Amino acid sequence: MNLILGLDKGTVDYLIKPFSAQELIIHIRANIELSLFRRKIILQKYKQEEINQLLLISIKLFSSSSINKTLHYIAEKVFHRIPCERIIIISNE
Rank of each mutant, 00 (worst) to 15 (best):
M1W: 03
N2F: 03
N2D: 13
L3D: 04
L3P: 00
I4K: 15
L5Y: 07
G6K: 12
D8K: 14
D8V: 01
T11V: 15
Y14Q: 02
L15G: 05
I16L: 13
K17N: 05
S20K: 07
S20P: 02
A21H: 07
A21L: 14
A21Q: 11
A21G: 05
Q22E: 14
L24D: 06
I25A: 08
I25R: 08
I25M: 05
H27T: 15
I28A: 13
I28S: 12
N31H: 08
N31I: 05
N31T: 07
L34P: 00
L36W: 07
F37I: 01
F37Y: 11
F37C: 02
F37V: 00
R38H: 13
K40M: 04
I42M: 08
I42P: 01
L43F: 10
Q44S: 12
Y46L: 05
K47F: 07
Q48R: 13
Q48E: 15
E49N: 12
E49F: 04
E50D: 08
Q53I: 12
L54A: 12
L54E: 06
L55P: 00
L55H: 07
L55Y: 11
I57N: 01
I57R: 00
I57H: 00
I59N: 10
K60M: 08
L61H: 03
F62M: 06
F62E: 14
S63Y: 06
S65P: 00
S65R: 14
S65W: 03
S65G: 07
S66F: 11
I67E: 08
K69F: 06
K69R: 11
K69G: 04
T70S: 15
T70I: 14
L71Y: 04
L71K: 07
H72Q: 11
I74E: 06
A75D: 05
A75S: 15
E76G: 02
E76P: 01
E76I: 12
K77F: 06
V78Q: 10
F79C: 01
F79I: 02
H80P: 00
R81I: 11
R81M: 10
I82R: 04
P83Y: 09
P83D: 11
P83I: 04
C84M: 09
C84A: 14
C84Q: 10
C84Y: 03
R86A: 05
R86I: 04
I87N: 06
I87D: 05
I88W: 09
I88Q: 12
I89E: 03
I89P: 00
I89G: 01
I90A: 04
S91G: 13
S91H: 11
S91P: 01
S91M: 05
E93P: 04
E93D: 09
